[in-house]
């Protein structure tokens, strides 16, 4: 159908405006569907069970779809993320199971160092400092950071090539990043 083809090309904002102004479930359905892979993953992360995650994604849709116009949504992505998280926490509370939230993951990342690592801008005067700091890192962290940010290898790739445990690779990169941030800030003054 030409109409459904067209709706798939709408931006999130257009769909949200359509959902609110037209009172048409097609718009919100399309918008919600786009985020299901992310929402389902988040639900998996909190509920630790595929079936529960599925139910959570479905019940959330049924909950918010009829009253979407009543919410004050600025950015749909951040809004739906927090709503999903709350929904999962509510489910966990109801089930009286122990709430498992890995707060280390929620640690607010420093954008600056990430930007430096991602862009590797030659014009940036901090780049030599960054390179010097990377040399100072412990071996595992240095190898993981270099392979992840400079050789574009995935966590699994690094685990496969180095023989490190996959979860260890993740923490090496996290910690390496944090160490780099401290080092660069100290040396760029």
């Amino acid at each position: 159908m030409w109409y459904s083809k067209k709706i798939s090309k709408f931006t999130d904002e257009e769909l949200l405006i359509g959902a609110i102004s037209e009172q048409n479930s097609v718009f919100f359905g399309e918008l919600y569907n786009r985020y299901i892979p992310l929402l389902y993953g988040v639900a998996l992360n909190y509920l630790q069970n595929a079936d529960n995650a599925k139910d959570a994604v479905m019940s959330l849709y049924e909950n918010i779809a009829p009253k979407i116009a009543s919410y004050d949504i600025i950015a749909f992505k951040t809004w739906i993320y927090s709503v999903m998280k709350n929904h999962c926490l509510q489910i966990l509370r109801k089930d009286k199971t122990e709430i498992f939230v890995d707060f280390s993951i929620n640690f607010v990342e420093d954008d600056e160092i990430l930007h430096l690592l991602n862009e590797k801008d030659e014009q940036d005067e901090r780049l030599p400092t960054l390179k010097m700091c990377i040399k100072k890192l412990p071996v595992e962290q240095r190898v993981s950071v270099l392979r992840f940010f400079f050789e574009e290898m995935s966590y699994q790739d690094i685990a496969d090539s180095t023989g490190y445990d996959l979860l260890k690779v993740k923490s090496y990169i996290q910690n390496g990043k944090r160490n780099l941030k401290i080092c660069v800030e100290k040396n760029s003054k």
Partner: peptide
């Protein structure tokens, strides 16, 4: 992107 990060964690763990 913490939204994406949590989702990836979910897929990794379950």
């Amino acid at each position: 992107d913490r939204f994406l990060e949590e989702a990836l964690n979910g897929y990794d763990n379950i």
